[in-house]
Write a protein that binds this DNA or RNA. Structure first.
Lengths: 226, 226
DNA sequence: CCATCTATAGTACAATGTACCATACGACGT
DNA sequence: ACGTCGTATGGTACATTGTACTATAGATGG
């Protein structure tokens, strides 16, 4: 019995010699290629559209070959989620001291990245702690500390920002998926006992980006009073 | 062809005469009973534990009989989610003018209700607009308006509170499910490039309720400055 | 007494994740 | 040269799932 089930397979040890990069004609079938293709598939067909068979088809490989590189379908989901969330940092800061702008940039990028792949929001509730997410948490922690937030408050601050972004993203993505439902729901409001939100057109106000920014400002205002 | 597929079945028209309430020995098999049993099953076995067959078993009925009362499994999920979220209001307000306390109470109840049924957080990303959720939104809208929040800000305020609660709940529930993973992740922090959050023990701080309340205060502070 | 509605259930099928097995190919020790 | 082993690929088979289709039975009303 060779070591098989062990999280991350041995896989790529070291090229014996020449670093020829893939004849490009065909399929070396790597972990990276699998994840990239999974993301494509998810973008195209949604969460239910990803099946191991379809994935293998797109890769031009047999279904079971995938299982050499990944442990399970769940594993593919985890990897796909994290792959969507890497962060390259703010665009050559004009004003590197402005912690608030930096935070806002990262959080808006975060949300935008996930909304570009709406299925990612549905995956969040499962396993959220890939390396890219940890990287973002680390960065937030650094920014907040150097911005002078009290050590005792820093964790709470991180979590509240995280919570806000996650909630906004999940909500936005789900309303996006079921656009018709939302309209239908707003319809129902009229005929039933929801007069206040019916009048304020809560479900029809489509300025999501603005609302996100506004709420984030509320939160940051509250934060910077410490 | 009888009218069959039409959202809510005809079902209970009106009792012809005597209102005998169920001989209680056996199964009238109603929509309500199905949903209640589904919630039990979800509590006991988690999201993947709910299958139509198991559900039928628990109800002592045939599988296909369920489909007379519900449209699909998705439908069951929607109903189960909403059923967890009804709200009975604050406990005979001592101080009915205190809008902030009222908001906090409702949001904490909201979060607590979902955490009692951790699967509910995973369902949120799908379809979030059942009657009970709408009821809560309605109530929030009323409170905020009467608290003097500017009309232009009220929708944004609602959404930011909603976002915060949803994010906090989703996060908390997912970390709860994968407790071991979290510890493992914190382990990994040490050996890799996340010095800041490793030092602050971000993933090990288990005072979730406190953190929730603290972040909520940040947000409400920011809100009440308008 | 026949028609129609309400409700329950069995059978059957297509789709899915993946365990198990067979196989091929290169590297390497002897 | 030959067998052995690790890497990698893929086929077959199976249990499990949601649900379409169909049959059936009681109740109701013309």
């Amino acid at each position: 019995m060779a070591a098989k089930r062990s999280g991350a397979r041995g896989k790529r040890s070291r090229r014996t010699s020449e670093p020829v990069q893939e004849p490009s004609g065909e399929s070396p079938l790597s972990r990276e290629r699998i994840v990239a293709t999974a993301v494509d598939l998810l973008d195209a067909q949604g969460l239910d559209g990803l099946t191991m068979r379809r994935l293998a088809d797109r890769l031009g490989s047999g279904v079971m070959s995938l299982y050499w590189h990944v442990d399970s379908k769940e594993d593919v989901f985890d990897l796909a989620l994290d792959s969507v969330l890497d962060y390259r940092g703010p665009p050559e800061m004009a004003e590197p001291q402005n912690w608030r702008a930096e935070i806002v940039h990262m959080l808006e990028d975060w949300r935008a990245g996930m909304l570009r792949h709406p299925w990612s929001a549905s995956l969040l509730p499962r396993r959220a702690l890939g390396p890219n997410i940890l990287g973002r948490l680390e960065r937030m922690s650094k920014i907040l500390s150097s911005a002078g937030v009290a050590d005792a408050d820093v964790n709470a601050a991180i979590w509240s920002l995280w919570n806000y972004v996650m909630g906004a993203t999940v909500t936005r993505a789900s309303f996006d998926l079921s656009d018709g439902d939302r309209a239908a729901a707003q319809q129902r409001l009229a005929s039933e006992r929801y007069p206040t939100i019916e009048r304020s057109r809560l479900l029809l106000d489509n300025d999501w980006d603005g609302a996100f920014r506004k709420g984030l400002d509320f939160l940051l205002d509250g934060l910077s009073r410490r």
